[in-house]
Write a protein that binds this DNA or RNA. Structure first.
Lengths: 126, 126
DNA sequence: CAGTATCCTTTGTGATACTG
DNA sequence: CAGTATCACAAAGGATACTG
């Protein structure tokens, strides 16, 4: 996805399309808020307000925006219960869970290496 | 990292510090360009100009900026050969390779689900 | 409660020019 | 070649008010 090396042949058209789509999806998903939301939903279904308080520091707007994006890409599912007041629940789809697994890995990595990184930073400031 | 639930106890101070640092690192690293650079460096050492052409669409400025950030956090190492013209090589550290493994997973995920996502998008536009 | 719309500020980004 | 600095612009983000 990073490096693109295609010849001009016809069979490559499909590969090129797949690649540019993959890159587009990657760009959508590879951002802080999206990944944190996915991580939060990994534990199970959550309401909008629950998500808002679990994802530390996210604004109302960013949450809405990213949830729409996740829904659009089929990573999260939105269920509306037509009660008063309304109740809206979000849950990960199969694709969403697939991505969550990799985000879990990223979180693990963060905890495994944060001391490492702390000292690297001190070294860098010199 | 997503959800923070601490009591006021003293032993939690360390956990809270670790958590906020983890979150900070996550925020640094969870962005498109950083992840694509790490993915590119996964294949081996690359020069600045090589990286620039491998990471499709990145600007000179963003590349520099992200490389500094990766260096500061100890994920990439910068080696300068004092020749004329200068030659600068970048390579992943152990921590960097650890992260790369998870990014690989993310790329794999992208290719595994892109058809899925394509149809989800069409459904969403309705 | 959940969501949209608006305004406004901050940050990200690209283009360009310049230096060792 | 690699890097810094600057400028101009676009996009991200936050706060607020309003609606069903």
């Amino acid at each position: 996805m990073v490096t693109k090396q295609f010849s001009g042949s016809a069979e490559d058209a499909d590969l090129r399309r797949a690649d540019s789509l993959a890159r587009e999806i990657f760009s959508d998903v590879a951002n802080k808020w999206a990944l944190l939301i996915i991580e939060a939903l990994g534990e199970g279904t959550l309401r909008f307000s629950e998500l808002r308080s679990r994802v530390e520091g996210i604004s109302h707007k960013m949450l809405t925006q990213n949830l729409r994006m996740l829904e659009r890409n089929g990573l999260a599912e939105r269920t509306v219960y037509p009660t008063v007041p309304p109740r809206v629940e979000y849950t990960l789809t199969e694709a969403g869970h697939g991505l969550r697994a990799t985000v879990d890995g990223m979180c693990d990595w963060t905890y495994r290496y944060f001391r490492h990184i702390e000292t690297a930073r001190r070294r860098f400031e010199a």
